[in-house]
């Protein structure tokens, strides 16, 4: 039985879906951003692997079918991006400038702090795309020699953090305009922040949804251009 489980592909995929489903259920009950389904599922599976002694390598091999879908699924982010693009046409220039400013601030502040701490290059590469959506951030991290697992965790926690402190920051900074709020949430806290922005107002949600994808694109272009010089 143990041998069967050890090498079964469907077992690991089913386990992943179950863990994620449980995470969704818990979030529905608690309604707290910290109980992010991806975060919970990750913790459940880690605990499961440590308890049963199943090697992580076997789990990873079993989940290859899921990992394979990452590129096609990421590409489909363009669909809602296109829809928001159509909807927000007249606000686009302002939104784009805000996103570019936020993205430069993100890359600059992450880079400088990493230099100040003197962390390993692979850690810096893992942290640089921390504010963009997981799909784009992890692809970037891998492209620049970062550690995908660290990037995934940091991105999700950044999103959760952003959606918790975002409303407070909006008050402190007096961000009252829904467009400014949307740009802030989307650029700083990607999809998870967008959920929060959508609760504040429909316009903020739409702007945030556009901003998160645009921030991902700007981040990838800036990172690859800067990489030629650094």
């Amino acid at each position: 039985m143990y041998d069967f489980v050890l090498n079964s592909s469907f077992f690991y995929v089913a386990l992943t879906l179950a863990a994620f489903g449980l995470g969704v259920l818990i979030q529905k009950k608690c309604k707290l951003a910290i109980f992010n389904p991806l975060l919970l599922a990750t913790i459940f599976i880690m605990a499961f692997l440590l308890l049963t002694g199943i090697p992580n390598e076997n789990y990873q091999a079993g989940c290859q079918a899921l990992t394979w879908l990452l590129t096609p699924a990421t590409i489909c982010l363009s669909i809602s991006f296109y829809q928001q693009f159509q909807k927000l046409k007249k606000h686009l220039p302002v939104i784009c400038i805000g996103v570019v400013a936020g993205t430069i601030a993100s890359l600059g502040s992450v880079y400088l702090l990493c230099m100040a701490f003197g962390v390993d290059e692979s850690i810096t590469a893992s942290l640089l795309p921390k504010s963009v959506t997981t799909a784009i951030g992890v692809a970037l991290s891998q492209e620049f020699g970062g550690i995908a697992a660290i990037t995934t965790a940091v991105i999700v926690i950044t999103g959760v953090l952003g959606s918790i402190i975002g409303p407070v920051l909006c008050k402190i900074l007096r961000l009252k305009d829904p467009i400014a709020q949307g740009v802030a949430f989307g650029t700083a806290a990607h999809v998870i922040g967008t959920t929060k922005a959508a609760q504040m107002s429909e316009l903020a949600g739409a702007v945030s949804s556009f901003s998160l994808t645009f921030a991902g694109l700007v981040t990838s272009i800036l990172m690859s251009v800067l990489a030629q010089f650094i």
Binding site: I95, T187, A189
Partner: peptide, 24 residues
């Protein structure tokens, strides 16, 4: 370092993106 970078830059990015947009 990771924790500090994560928290500090999230605040910075949120503030810059939001304030620049609102300012414009």
């Amino acid at each position: 370092p990771i924790l500090v970078v994560m928290i500090a830059t999230t605040v910075i990015v949120f503030a810059v993106a939001g304030l620049v947009t609102q300012w414009i």
